[in-house]
Design a binder for these strands. Structure first.
Lengths: 181, 181
DNA sequence: CGTGACGTTTAGTTCAAACTAAACGTAGTA
DNA sequence: TACTACGTTTAGTTTGAACTAAACGTCACG
């Protein structure tokens, strides 16, 4: 292939790598997505090993994560034992996938921990002089929990709406920018 | 202090620690914020060393980051050389701070890298057989850049609006949830 | 069966980020 | 000027996540 094109691809892949790392994913994962995204043809696992320059094991695990997030899709071809991958090109879907994953994992847990701390404060037997402090704790924790709940609702609402009819986020955005004052 | 209350605080701080780590910040940073957030009084650097259990150096650097993000505020007291810190309790402000930081740093860079890759593809001298591929690259990269631009605009719009009059995000949220159909 | 071409799993290694310990700079105080 | 009480900086260490190399399981086809 053309050297300059290859160089451009290289640069792009490196960029994806950085973005991936920045959002808390493995660098190789971003690089793999970049490679798939810039390929007109579905890529096999070995193709990716060649293009990205990491080992098969790494590609295997990372590509599985990408699939779980809905960032790539597996294509099996008849009479060919290899798995081929194509990129999801609807980035809003990608965002949804990531948000959903994050929401399920640590996000709910965060809510949980605050909830637990509140309950611990609740049931704590306090001396009169600590009662004031306990109430302070209650208020602060309650405020944080309210915020988390709002945020959680916001995210799941957006996901749900956008799944019903794609484009909710865009429309929300347009409403934000176009409406003057 | 009451043991049960202390335990609740401990648990809460640990939770903040996890959240911090999850969002790509040092765990100690979250813990420090948690401690400040649960304190009715401003806390000095040495207070934090005692409460969080990390060294002064770590507190020093992490608390500075927290201040840069607008998550805590420094309070200097007359006739006292110590710095005291209080927590920002408006979480939307906190979100804004984080988004702004992220936007400035890596977010803009991501846009940049894609831009550069596009230009490299642009100026690449292609043989006829590579011309098709080059065009494919162009399209894909352009799509991604459009998305990034949209996202970037969305974020900075939200930040700007919310700064003008706090509560934009909440109202946006309410509009999303309350409007039926 | 046996063999080769796959994807997956695992034990071990690498590496970068966060932390510690301690030196350092500075400003107020006697 | 020396001393103390701070916050900051830095050299070195720790830690955990991501990667590598290689063994493994499996399936198709002879």
């Amino acid at each position: 292939m053309n050297d300059e094109l290859a160089e451009a691809r290289e640069h792009f892949i490196q960029g994806m790598s950085r973005i991936s790392h920045f959002w808390g994913f493995p660098k190789a994962m971003g690089a793999i997505y970049g490679a798939v995204y810039l390929s007109p043809e579905p890529l096999s696992l070995d193709d990716l090993v060649a293009q990205v320059g990491v080992t098969k094991g790494s590609v295997s695990t990372n590509v599985r994560t990408l699939e779980r997030l809905g960032m790539v899709h597996k294509r099996v071809q008849l009479g060919d034992r290899k798995d081929y991958y194509v990129a999801e090109t609807d980035f809003w879907k990608v965002v949804r996938g990531v948000l959903r994953e994050r929401e399920q994992n640590e996000f709910a847990q965060a809510l949980n921990t605050v909830q637990e701390s509140m309950e611990m404060t609740d049931t704590a037997v306090t001396t009169p002089e600590d009662a004031e402090l306990a109430q302070f704790y209650q208020e602060r924790m309650q405020n944080m929990q309210n915020f988390f709940n709002t945020l959680d609702n916001l995210v799941s609402t957006l996901i749900a709406l956008d799944e019903l009819r794609s484009g909710t986020i865009q429309r929300l955005f347009n409403r934000s920018t176009n409406s003057s004052s």
